[in-house]
Computed example of a mutant assay.
Amino acid sequence: MDYENHRIYGMSVASVYVHYVTKAERKGRTRDEVDEVTRWLTGYSQQQLEQALADKTPFQDFFDNAPRLNPSRSLIKGVICGVRLEEIDHPLMRDIRYLDKLVDELAKGRPMAKILRS
């Protein structure tokens, strides 16, 4: 896949976030839990996350400006959208898919301690 021209980079996090929340809530999880996994991954505070969503920050900027990408994110393994995370070479696409995977695990009912690799 040509990751350099992938259209998701310019999409706002907010435009996808609403789907993350819907997916989680359909499975009995909460928006707060979606926020928690997002903050764990990126190092954003709740206020910074809410501002990025309000500003419709593109994924590229969201991850480029993340206060502290969690070094334990490399422990996130598996397949998301038909692609094995360990095989994604492009750093931004890998981080986007890490977030997808965290929300997926949340929606599947996995305990928060396991999702956050505690």
Rank of each mutant, 00 (worst) to 15 (best):
N70P: 03
Y98I: 09
G43Q: 03
L69M: 14
D100A: 00
N70C: 07
Y17P: 02
L53E: 07
G109V: 06
A54N: 11
M93G: 01
L69N: 03
N65P: 03
V13M: 15
P111K: 00
V13N: 03
V34D: 04
S45T: 15
E4K: 14
N70L: 04
Y98A: 03
Y17W: 15
V21K: 03
V34E: 04
P91D: 06
L116C: 07
R31F: 02
L41I: 07
G109F: 04
Y44A: 01
K108A: 12
L102M: 10
L41G: 01
V103I: 12
I96G: 04
Y3A: 13
L99A: 01
F63A: 05
G43S: 06
W40H: 05
L85E: 05
R7G: 03
R117A: 11
V18S: 13
V79N: 14
K23H: 11
L41W: 02
V34M: 02
D64Y: 08
P67K: 01
N70D: 09
E25F: 02
D2N: 15
D95I: 00
E87A: 12
K23L: 15
L41F: 09
S118Y: 11
I96R: 01
Y9D: 06
W40F: 15
I88C: 09
S72M: 12
E33M: 02
L106G: 05
G82P: 12
L106I: 07
A14P: 00
R94K: 15
D32W: 02
V34R: 01
I8W: 10
K27S: 14
H90T: 10
T42V: 08
G109N: 03
E86G: 13
V18Y: 05
D2Q: 12
D32L: 11
